[in-house]
Design a protein around this nucleic acid. Structure first.
Length: 284
DNA sequence: ATCCAGGATCTCC
DNA sequence: GGAGATCATGGA
């Protein structure tokens, strides 16, 4: 690797492993215990966890400043967030202990939307494989065997049949519907910033195949709506396990409980809980 | 082999 | 408006 293009960053609360492997993103490759490659924002980057509180970015200062600092959410004070969501909650303190260096990536909207449409009723390894296939088929080559996630433009004339042949299954029609509604301005991302979260959620759910969970993931992982609390099977299990000792609760009740406990930082809380639940196979 | 996956939709009442 | 079946596919 080019020695000129390498910079070491010292920062607290940042673990590559926890941030990349917590289930929020799909386009990373683990090279060894400390080294990863990540593809995002039409680029590929190599990274290495040097010490507990430092990470090497194999990139230029310019790309770090304009892209990766933002992508890895490195300007945010996670210590303060962790303190806030766990102050009166020993359960959350326990969950956070399992991923003290987890940060919420700022992913691109289109990639995030398609990825989480694909995630429904699917396994993470298979989701990753399908996304790789989509990128290889429609995306821009980055090196010999790496491809950027395709843009909306690059997927604008994709057909449902094509997508089915790539293994997307029943989700193919959902993806073409998303592409259609974004291309013909039925849904206009430039209007998102002036919508409140409820309105934005409702707008995203106009896409066939986007329900509450996928809409919440897209808002949390790519639209900076940190107050949302996506509830999947893992989060439901751990919320019931931790906060009502095995009783049954509806999604609405869990949603309300999360809002009450974690407020504007519910999304961060959700991600710590998800990681903890999956690591410990809570409820399985 | 058979189960099941970071759900959503359709159908039923 | 809530419960239950159904959906494509392949890794475990």
């Amino acid at each position: 690797m080019d020695k000129q293009k390498k910079m070491t960053l010292t920062i607290n609360d940042f673990s590559l492993k926890e941030t990349l492997e917590c289930g929020q993103c799909f386009r990373f490759q683990k090279i060894d215990e400390f080294t990863y490659t990540v593809i995002a924002r039409q680029r590929l980057i190599h990274l290495r966890q040097a010490t507990h509180d430092s990470v090497i970015f194999y990139t230029s200062q310019k790309d770090f400043d304009t892209i990766w600092k933002d992508y890895f959410d490195l300007s945010r004070d996670y210590r303060a967030i962790k303190k806030e969501i766990s102050e009166h909650d020993s359960m959350m303190q326990t969950a956070i202990q399992y991923a003290t260096g987890l940060r919420l990536l700022q992913q691109e909207f289109f990639e995030c939307l398609i990825s989480f449409i694909l995630s429904q009723n699917n396994h993470i390894p298979r989701i990753k494989r399908i996304i790789e296939t989509l990128s290889k088929t429609y995306g821009t080559p980055l090196d010999e065997n790496s491809y950027a996630f395709p843009t909306l433009q690059q997927m604008s004339s994709v057909t449902e049949d094509e997508l089915r042949q790539l293994g997307t299954g029943f989700r193919a029609k959902y993806i073409t519907d998303a592409i259609r509604k974004l291309s013909d301005n039925t849904i206009d991302p430039t209007a998102f910033s002036q919508m409140d979260t409820a309105k934005l959620r409702e707008t995203l759910m106009k896409i066939h195949g986007v329900g509450p969970k996928v809409a919440d993931c897209v808002m949390l992982f790519s639209l900076k709506r940190y107050e949302v609390f996506p509830i999947d099977v893992w989060v439901k299990r751990i919320m019931i396990d931790l906060y009502c000792h095995g009783c049954d609760k509806s999604l609405k009740e869990i949603q309300a409980l999360a809002k009450e406990m974690f407020g504007k930082n519910a999304g961060f809380a959700q991600q710590y809980l998800f990681y903890y639940a999956r690591q410990n196979k809570i409820g399985k």
